[in-house]
Every structure is written in structure tokens, then in C-alpha cells.
Design a protein around this nucleic acid. Structure first.
Length: 801
DNA sequence: AGCACGCCGACT
DNA sequence: GTCGGCGTGCTC
């Protein structure tokens, strides 16, 4: 009896979201295993797609003929058993297609690149052939081809006058380098040297080198060390002195040497935490620890020692860090401790570098993985510990399909590997803290800073008062006095602004007209660096208006506050201060982030002005002052998590002050000085915040008391989106129990993005066994509607907006 | 997704 | 009468 492979094909639709059966080619030399990539014929004609082998089993009788796998792309599976099982689970819980999940787990380099090529048949008339193909034998059918030409070619294809072939390629390439090794004995080489003409200096150098060096060396490296050209080496190869061959190399994203670090001495609380975690690793228990430690309490050292223990026991470690704080500082500390066994995965890597790091993990050459959200899918085996730093960070949730939360995946893997998970934070998410309360998680506390330094003293500045005292300014007088004081002392200041861009919008003072994006429901943002107005959602760009397009007045002005504007204002107030600005615009280029931090660390600037990204994980000993310019921005958002976000951000950024010997000071400028999130952030009282916020969540039936699902419908026609969401609401209401609450339907907070209208609803529920099936049913129906209506389901959304 | 099939309007 | 528009259904 022959075998059949069940294949998940790379066609992300609801109808094809199931394995398809294929015959296995008889000529296969290696066994076909689940997790291998294959190329299969799919659909009519000769269309070929990439697929993943899901299962292999004995053939059973079927109603229709099976096609045969075209070719196998891998010698060994790119996805192991664990990752395949996880993909199945993740597709079900996030309402995503299995293929989408599988592709998310792999580096981009392993995704398929599809090509379609057209070749003329013999009965194509010569004139058309000349016109369409010119001198070429075949042309590629891409979207870039003019539509008319593409249509004509497809017409000819239907008439069988041309053929279309499909090619499926792997995007990534294994980097190869030419290696050189001596091919003669020392005596023979010396003999060869005797034969040289006296002027052949370079050849003599090369021979000298070959005589002494028996190790392998790459050709580029050899050329560089000896100062010779490739011609010399080529000639040498022809003369038989040396042989050249291709070898695989890794692109090393961290070529800089890192200083070795040694384990630090632990205080009592740290020691207790490390012991508890190590015991769980040693006993193979899937305990979840919530490591709650104030900023500067030495959480990283706890992580490192827990990782060291797992490595000693022959197990591997996974460490997740938010993208924003995946700074050279953190990576350096891990690399300094564990050296070359560390692989790093983050968005700053090129596709090739990412692929190489992934392969090092896959082959077991890297035993510690440090990375952002998607690193949770690293192909590590035998995991002994999983760490998730800053577990409350919203960036752990992916905001497009599959809408997974890295924390959920980490917990799944911990159950699979029977290993502990450490969720670390100074300000845990309410969900996690509530689970610790119920003893589902084990709580570990680090109550004091390692340097015995008191937490910084925080002052709330009431900006409504400031506004009355003097003209509108971003900076209050107490904050400016403090900044001046640091400048005089030669200490450093962090200033955080809750936004980006120069100013949030442009408004006409005469008629109130605000310049908006033509595609989206959002005002355009002024960017001084490019002298243009940009839409942060669709990327639309247009010139800055000089006169109001509505009433033609010249009184069109900038409103709101952005980092660029604040920087200009700050430079006027403090002409001598050296200011560094760090936001999305100044850190877009690769390595810019790192460079800015190094400059600040080297004391090349007095003030670091930035957005949220300066709040996380930075550790500069000379920073003694932190100013939050606008604490409110997030508070005014109509979302159940806005207080939590504000509290977390303020607490995080306050922790940046006074990390070393000098005491720190914090100023929080706000228009809501009495708000509990701001008051409790001032006193750094996480416990009171937790209790207060939990009470409100309880009253409002919000998570973590209720589960939530957000459903969004979008269409180019507003009516279609609105009608769809109302129909969905009715359908869901009918299928759920009385206790489920539906919020909406309403237009989304940004009701139009990229010429599409968005409508949404949120379901809050305690227990709805039918809901999952209802939602899948919804997706199934939506798929039938081909006119462009899109339905998105976000399980456990990070926000209701 | 991508392709074929099938049923209706404007043309050699 | 046909060419080709796109609405509908299927892909092992």
C-alpha cells in the first residue's frame, strides 16, 4: 500500500483552509516527513503552489483521483512536531488560516516566491510573437506588465497559442563563500616558489602564506590579508597550488565583540526568585512565575542566572523582550554572559541574517534565543526556561493575522516542554496580576532597587495652572528650573513626549479647517524634515498649505505638540544645551537607534528628547531627571486600558531616573492632576493601582473579569460595512447566551483608513461554548462575499478602539 | 488566490 | 450569430 501526504497549501482562504491529499512520488530518495515544504499542483491548469506536509499516512480509498507532489523543497522538516501542533492550536484560537500561522512561524526567507512565465507555442502567428516577445524566448507574467498586454497574453493562453509555466522558489539563499586550502605539500610549494621569476612578488607572498598556513581561509579574507587580487588566486588554483570550494557561512548580525560578564551577586529577594525558578526547571514543572520588580530591581540578572541554570542542566532557553527595548544594552548583557550560544531575532535584521540565526537555532548551535514577539516561534528544542520581560507590553500582541499574543504562545510551549515561564514586569498587566492573585501564577517579588537607591521623587505639575500663569508653553517653570539645574551640574535629562511628528495637525485660525487625509479619517501630521504633510495610516503625503484651502485665509497654523516642535522650542529656551531627539523619524534607518543611545551614553548630549521608546529598559547612570511633557494623551482615549497604559508608561519612564548613585527626580506635566493613574504613578504604588483598576474593570464587566472578542467589518462602501456589522451583531446575539454583552456596533475610532470604512463590535462574555463555532461560521460566510467586504476577528483584543 | 465555467450585452 | 464582461464555484 502506498502512502499519501496531507498538505496545507499556500492559498490563504477559508475554503482551502484544510489539508489536501497528494500521492508521494515513488522516486523520492529521502522519506517525506511532516513539516517539509513541497511544491504541489493545485487547481486547474498547471498552477503550482508551495505547501507544508501536515501528515503522512497509508492511502485510503477516495472518491476522486489524487495528484502527485511535484517536488520536495527540504531535506529535513523546517517545522518540527511541536511547531506543527502549535500551529493547529493557534489557528483555532486566533481565527486565522493554518497556512498563515505556518508562514508566520518561519523566517521570510523560507516563504515561496511565485513566478509565472509565458512561452509562445508553434501556432502563434509570427507578428504577435514578435510584438509580444521580441527576441525573448519567454516573458514573466507579473503585475508590473501593462494590463492590456497581460489580458492579451491570457487570451492567447486560453486559445492555446502560448503556454504558461509556474515556478515556485524559496526566497532565501544560504550564503556561500569561496574557501581556499593548500593542495600541495610544503615541499612542493617551496619547490614552486623556487621556480618563480624574481618579479613575481605577489605569487611568492601567496606561496609563503600557503606554506605556513594549513587552516582553511576564505578567498576574500586571504585577498585582504595578503593584499593580492583574485587573479593571483585564480592562477594559483590553475597551477594546482591550492584548491577552492564553496562553503556555507552565517551572516553574523552581531559581529562586534562583547565583553564577557560574570554573574552578579544577588540580594535576598533575587536569590529567592532564582531558586524558585531553577527548582521548577530542574523538576520539569510548567509553573508560570510573575516576577514583579520595581525598575532597577535587577530582574535581568534573575533571568540570566535562571538561563544559566537551564544551560547547565543541558536544556535551552528562550527570552522574549519587547521590540522597542531590544537594545544593544540588553543583547550585550546576554551575549556577554553566554557568548556565541546566543541567537538574536528582531526586526532590525535583514532577511538573510534572520534566516541564518534561525538555522543556527534549528541546528542546535544556538541554545539561547533572545528576540521580540515572533521569536516565540524559534525552533528551539528541549526548552528549560522561557522568559518574557515587560510582559505587559502591548507589542507582544500582533495586530494583523494571525492575531496572536506571544504570552499565550509562551505558556503553550511551557506546557509542551514542562518548563517554567517567567513573566517579568514592574507593572504587570492586570490579567497576569489577577491570575497571580488566584494562585494560577506564582508571584515573585523584587521590592527594592539593587543599588539601595530610593525610587525617584515625583512631582505632578498641573498644566492648567501653568497655562494661566504664562503663555502657552510645552515646558512648565518647575521642570525648566530642574533641567537648568542638571545642565549646571553636568547631569543628564530624559524628556518624554507621548507622540511623534512636528505637530499633530494644521488648523486654520479663521474658519477652523483642519487638513485631513483624502483616504483616511485622520488629520495629516506635519513633518518638518521632509517639509510635507503625512498620513500616519496610509502614507499619503502632500505639501504644507500656506493658505487655508477652505477660506483662503493666511492664518493657518500648527497645533498640537510633536517631538520636532518641542526640540525647536527647547533649543530656543536652552541655546547651549546639547539635545538628542529620538522618535520614529530619527530611528528609522538601520542602526540609528543604537547610535543615538551610544551618543547619549557617552555624554555627548545633555538632554534626550523622545517618544515612548525612551521609556523602556534604558539604563544611563547620569540621568537624574525625567520629565513627562504630556502625561494625558493616552488617558483621553475611549478605551478600557487607557488608565493601565498611562500608569505603566509613567512608572516605566520614572524608573529611568537615578539608576546609579545619584538620586533621581521626576516631573509629570498633566491636565488631569487628580486622576488615579497619575497620582498612583507618582507614588509608584502598583498595588493600589491594581486594586483600584480591578474594581473599575469589575464594575464595567471588562477583562480580566470578562473575555472579549472584537469583530471588524470593512469595505470601500460605508453602507456595506455598516450593514454587514449589524447583520453580524444580530447573528451573534441569537447564538449566544443572555449573559453575553455586545458593545456596538459602532464605526471604528478611525472610521476610514486607506479608502475603506471600518465598523466594529465587541463581545464581552464569561462562558460561550458556541462562540468559536459562530465566529468561524462568520468568516466562512464572509469569504463567499467576493466584492471586497472584509471581516477581521481579534480574540482578546489589546484595545476596544 | 487563480482559474474555468457559464450566462447576458455590444459588436465584426 | 460571437466576443468578452464578470458573477459563482472549486481546487486533493
Amino acid at each position: 500500500m502506498s502512502q499519501v501526504a496531507e498538505v496545507i497549501v499556500d492559498v490563504p482562504t477559508m475554503q482551502t483552509n484544510t489539508p489536501y491529499s497528494y500521492l508521494i512520488p515513488a522516486a523520492l530518495t529521502t522519506p517525506l516527513l511532516p513539516g517539509m515544504r513541497v511544491i504541489v499542483p493545485f487547481g486547474n491548469g498547471s498552477r503550482k503552489v508551495q505547501g507544508f506536509v501536515w501528515q503522512v499516512h497509508e492511502q485510503v480509498p477516495t472518491t476522486h483521483e489524487l495528484k502527485t507532489i511535484d517536488s520536495v523543497m527540504d531535506l529535513s522538516p523546517v517545522l518540527n512536531k511541536e511547531l506543527l501542533a502549535m500551529a493547529d492550536w493557534l489557528a483555532k484560537t486566533t481565527f486565522a488560516f493554518t497556512i498563515t500561522v505556518l508562514l508566520t512561524m518561519l523566517p521570510n526567507a523560507l516563504k515561496a516566491a511565485y513566478e509565472r512565465w509565458a512561452t509562445p507555442n508553434s501556432d502563434l502567428d509570427p507578428a504577435s510573437k514578435k510584438r509580444l516577445f521580441g527576441e525573448q524566448e519567454k516573458i514573466e507574467l507579473t503585475d508590473k506588465l501593462p494590463a492590456a498586454q497581460l489580458n492579451e497574453l491570457m487570451g492567447l493562453y486560453r486559445k492555446h497559442e502560448i503556454s504558461v509555466t509556474y515556478e515556485v522558489k524559496s526566497k532565501g539563499h544560504v550564503k556561500q563563500v569561496t574557501m581556499v586550502k593548500p593542495a600541495m605539500s610544503v615541499a612542493e610549494l617551496q619547490e614552486a616558489k623556487q621556480q618563480l621569476r624574481i618579479t613575481a612578488v605577489k605569487q611568492a607572498d601567496l606561496l609563503d602564506y600557503l606554506v605556513t598556513q594549513t587552516d582553511l581561509i576564505s578567498q576574500p579574507a586571504l585577498e585582504k590579508t595578503l593584499g593580492i587580487t583574485s587573479t593571483v588566486i585564480k592562477n594559483a588554483a590553475e597551477k594546482g597550488w591550492l584548491t577552492r570550494f564553496q562553503a556555507e557561512v552565517y551572516r553574523d548580525p552581531l559581529s562586534r565583540a562583547v565583553d564577557k560578564t560574570r554573574p552578579l551577586h544577588l540580594n535576598e529577594a533575587q536569590q529567592k526568585a532564582v531558586s524558585a525558578i531553577c527548582a521548577a526547571t530542574d523538576d520539569h514543572e510548567d509553573t508560570t512565575f510573575l516576577l514583579e520588580g520595581v525598575t532597577g530591581s535587577g530582574k535581568t540578572e534573575v533571568y540570566l542566572q535562571a538561563i544559566a541554570n537551564a544551560l547547565e542542566k543541558g536544556q535551552n532557553a528562550l527570552m522574549l523582550v519587547p521590540e522597542i527595548s531590544l537594545t544593544p544594552q540588553i543583547v550585550g548583557r546576554v551575549r556577554g554572559r553566554f557568548g556565541k550560544q546566543v541567537a538574536v531575532l528582531h526586526s532590525g535584521l535583514s532577511a538573510g541574517e534572520r534566516f541564518d540565526e534561525w538555522r543556527r537555532i534549528d541546528r542546535g548551535e544556538a541554545r539561547v534565543v533572545v528576540g521580540a514577539r515572533s521569536a516565540v516561534f524559534a525552533p528551539l528544542t528541549n526548552i528549560g526556561i522561557i522568559i518574557m520581560d515587560e510582559e505587559h507590553e502591548a507589542s507582544y500582541k500582533q495586530d494583523d493575522n494571525p492575531r496572536y499574543h506571544a504570552r499565550d504562545v509562551a505558556l503553550w510551549r511551557s506546557r509542551y516542554h514542562h518548563c517554567p515561564v517567567v513573566l517579568g514586569s514592574a507593572t504587570p498587566s492586570l490579567e497576569s496580576r489577577a491570575r497571580a492573585q488566584k494562585n494560577r501564577y506564582q508571584r515573585l517579588l523584587l521590592p527594592t532597587r539593587v543599588n539601595q537607591q530610593a525610587l525617584p521623587e515625583a512631582t505632578i505639575v498641573d498644566m492648567t495652572q501653568e497655562l494661566q500663569k504664562h503663555a502657552e508653553s510645552t515646558f512648565s517653570s518647575p521642570l525648566m528650573a530642574a533641567v537648568n539645574d542638571r545642565l549646571a551640574k553636568g547631569e543628564q535629562t530624559l524628556l518624554m513626549l507621548n507622540r511623534r511628528g512636528y505637530s499633530s495637525f494644521v488648523m486654520c485660525r479663521d474658519c477652523g479647517f483642519v487638513l485631513k487625509c483624502p483616504n483616511c479619517d485622520i488629520s495629516l501630521t506635519l513633518h518638518m524634515d521632509s517639509h510635507s504633510m503625512k498620513c500616519h495610516y496610509c502614507g499619503h503625503e502632500e505639501p504644507i498649505p500656506q493658505i487655508c484651502p477652505n477660506c483662503h485665509s493666511h492664518h493657518i497654523r500648527y497645533y498640537g505638540t510633536g517631538t520636532q516642535k518641542v526640540e525647536t522650542e527647547l533649543k530656543q529656551l536652552l541655546p547651549t544645551a546639547r539635545i538628542l531627539r529620538m522618535d520614529v523619524d530619527t530611528t528609522r534607518r538601520k542602526g540609528a537607534h543604537e547610535r543615538l543611545l551610544r551618543q547619549f551614553g557617552n555624554h555627548e548630549a545633555d538632554i534626550l528628547l523622545g517618544t515612548q521608546m525612551i521609556a523602556k529598559g534604558l539604563d544611563f547612570p547620569d540621568v537624574t531627571l525625567v520629565g513627562v511633557l504630556n502625561a494625558d494623551t493616552a488617558l483621553s482615549l475611549p478605551d478600557f486600558r487607557s488608565s493601565e497604559r498611562t500608569f505603566q508608561l509613567l512608572t516605566q519612564v520614572s524608573g529611568r531616573a537615578g539608576r546609579a548613585q545619584k538620586p533621581g527626580q521626576v516631573f509629570i506635566q498633566t491636565y488631569n492632576p487628580e486622576h488615579y493613574a497619575i497620582q498612583l504613578a507618582k507614588s509608584q504604588d502598583y498595588e493600589r493601582f491594581f486594586l483600584t483598576e480591578m474594581k473599575l474593570r469589575h464594575q464595567g464587566n471588562y477583562p480580566p473579569y470578562y473575555f472579549a472578542v472584537k469583530v471588524t467589518a470593512s469595505d470601500v462602501e460605508e453602507r456595506v460595512a455598516a450593514a454587514a456589522i449589524h447583520q453580524i451583531a444580530a447573528q451573534l446575539q441569537a447564538g449566544m447566551s443572555q449573559s453575553a454583552i455586545v458593545l456596538g456596533p459602532t464605526p471604528s475610532a478611525i472610521a476610514r483608513v486607506n479608502k475603506r470604512y471600518y465598523y466594529q463590535l465587541v463581545i464581552k462574555y464569561k462562558q460561550e461554548p458556541q462562540l468559536s463555532a459562530l465566529l468561524f461560521n462568520l468568516l466562512n460566510q464572509a469569504q463567499k462575499n467576493r466584492k471586497g467586504l472584509q471581516i477581521a476577528i481579534d480574540n482578546n483584543p489589546m484595545s476596544f478602539m
